[in-house]
Amino acid sequence: MMKSFLQFIQIHKSVKQHATRFSAVVVVLLFGLFLQAYMHDFNLVYITLFFVFSFAFSAGPIGVLNIGSLKSTFLKQGRFFAEVEGKIPLQLYNPSKSTAWAIDIFYDKDTFLPLEKLESDTSTILQLPYTPNKRGHFTYEGVYLESKYPLSTARLTKLVKEIFTALAYPQPKGKSLNSFLSEDESHYGEEKEFDGLRDYDGSQKLSHIHWASVAKGELSVKTFVKEHQTQNLLFHFFTSGSDDEARLSQLCLWALSCEKLHLTFDIQMPQKRLSSNKESIDEILSYLAKY
C-alpha cells in the first residue's frame, strides 16, 4: 500500500497539470449547482453537485496514472541526413496494469501523433519526423506526452526527459554515380555484351542511345555486361565539387549509391583515405559529417 502510494507520488511528480477550458466549465457548473442546491436545500442537486465534484477530483489521479506510468525511450536506429526528413523512433512502454488511453505525442509545438490506446505490458514504436538543419551532431528534445483523459478537465503533460542525439550526415546530392562512371569508363571495365535497356538520364554517351526506342517515342540507352570488374572506385574530395559542402554532399551520395550496388570504393580526403573495405559505410559517412 505504502509502496503504491510512493510510486504514485513519484509518477505524480513527473506529470504536469494544466487547466483547460473544461476546467472553467466544471468550476461554473459546480458554482451553479451549489447555488441551486444551497438556496433551496435541494438534496438531489446536492447529490449531482457532489458527484460532479468527485468526478473532477478523481479525474486528476486517474489521468496522472494514465499518462504518468508510461515509459519512453528513443531508439538508436536509422540514418539522418542534413535537410532530409528522417524518423526518430520513440518507444513507448506501458508497464501498468491498466490500458493507457488517448495519448498525444507532441514532437513539435503544435504537431503531434495520436495514440488511441496502449494496452498494459505492451510497447509501441512511434516514428517522429525530424529534419536536421545541417550535418554534424544534433540533439532532439522537447518531446512530451499529452493527455486529457479522462474528462478533459485537465491537460496532463509528461516530458520525455531523454535527449536524443545523433549524427546528421551531409545531404546526399550532386551527380549520380552513373554519371561519374560514364566520365571515366576505365573505372568500370570494358563493355562486352549487350545487356538490356534503361532510361536515359543525360549522363550517358550518345553512342549508347538506343535509337530504335527513340523512334517509338522512348529515350533509352543500351547497357553492356562488363568484361571484368575494375579495381576499387576512387572518389577524390577536391574534384567532387565546387566547395566543401557540395563535395561532402556529393561523396555522401556516391557512398550511398555504392552501398546500394554493393560496390567497394575509396575516398581520397585531404588528409585521409577512406576505404569501404576497411571501414563501414556509417564510419565513412560519419567522417564526412564531422569534416
Partner: peptide, 11 residues
C-alpha cells in the same frame, strides 16, 4: 466507484 465514498462523506 472511486467517487461514491466522497459523495457519501460530502453529502
Amino acid at each position: 466507484m472511486y467517487s461514491l465514498p466522497w459523495v457519501v462523506v460530502l453529502f
